[in-house]
Design a protein around this nucleic acid. Sequence first.
DNA 1: AACACTTTCATACTTTAGTATGAAATTACG
DNA 2: CGTAATTTCATACTAAAGTATGAAAGTGTT
Lengths: 143, 143
Amino acid sequence: MTKQINVKSTILYGVSMAILLFLLKWLELRFVVFNHLFEIYAGIISIVFMVLGAWLMYHFQQRKQEKENARKEMVAIPELGLSQREMEVLELMSQGFTNQQIADKLFLSIHTIKTHGSNLFVKLDVKNRTQALIRAKELEILE
Amino acid sequence: MTKQINVKSTILYGVSMAILLFLLKWLELRFVVFNHLFEIYAGIISIVFMVLGAWLMYHFQQRKQEKENARKEMVAIPELGLSQREMEVLELMSQGFTNQQIADKLFLSIHTIKTHGSNLFVKLDVKNRTQALIRAKELEILE
DNA sequence: AACACTTTCATACTTTAGTATGAAATTACG
DNA sequence: CGTAATTTCATACTAAAGTATGAAAGTGTT
């Protein structure tokens, strides 16, 4: 789990650096031709990297939130074999979110959420999300 | 509260722009002196604005979270005008029954249950039954 | 390396939930 | 009695939920 995130982060970082280098190289070339347009380039770079920074922070925050939630749930899990993701989905279901909203929050496809949903319904021996919440409360694996 | 945030945002924005302008001016000056250090400046700008972007997004996310929490606590309205039947339907919904099952229990058509459902969702200001249960518990009109 | 488990995504389908609208019968109350 | 609110039912629709099945890739363990 953690490793997967690290891999993703590494790739993300690599891509970012590649873009940066490419940008610098390209700008260097442009610089030779039009060396009086520095401000424009500076502006472009500013915008690009501000967006990049914002994007990175956004995803960082989301992951932080996920981990936060995950930790909350990690406390009391009996022998039901609910995986971490399934717990996360269950948690968000219990907060009244639709499958689509959960998918958006976790950066996943709605198909994936439905899969997790079906699987955890089987494990909880229920037929729908409402019953799942009741069961989860009974088993004290939520709240 | 909201105004205060807006003021903060405005100040923040102003400061950001001031820094940007100052930076550009400063860089312009440097540019005249050392026009062969473009990459360094580009790098600096990149870093500065990536940090700025990240910082802005961080605060944006924080505020979003605050609003989210504020909205949750805003509830507390006991007089909702839920009718008797609507309460019955809500009660059975909270026990995990489907509309069809509720209809069978109350010897009613499933259409009627859906009508009651829709009506009570409006009164509770929610979108679906899961949220209705959450709201009902918040308002302590169940259990 | 082999294996079990998890996670992700997809297609195709069925079922359930929910909305909009209208209407008729019943009940409660001034 | 008349009026408003409740309760019931219906049709027709859209949206969401849930199932079945398969597949690919990553993770962790032995």
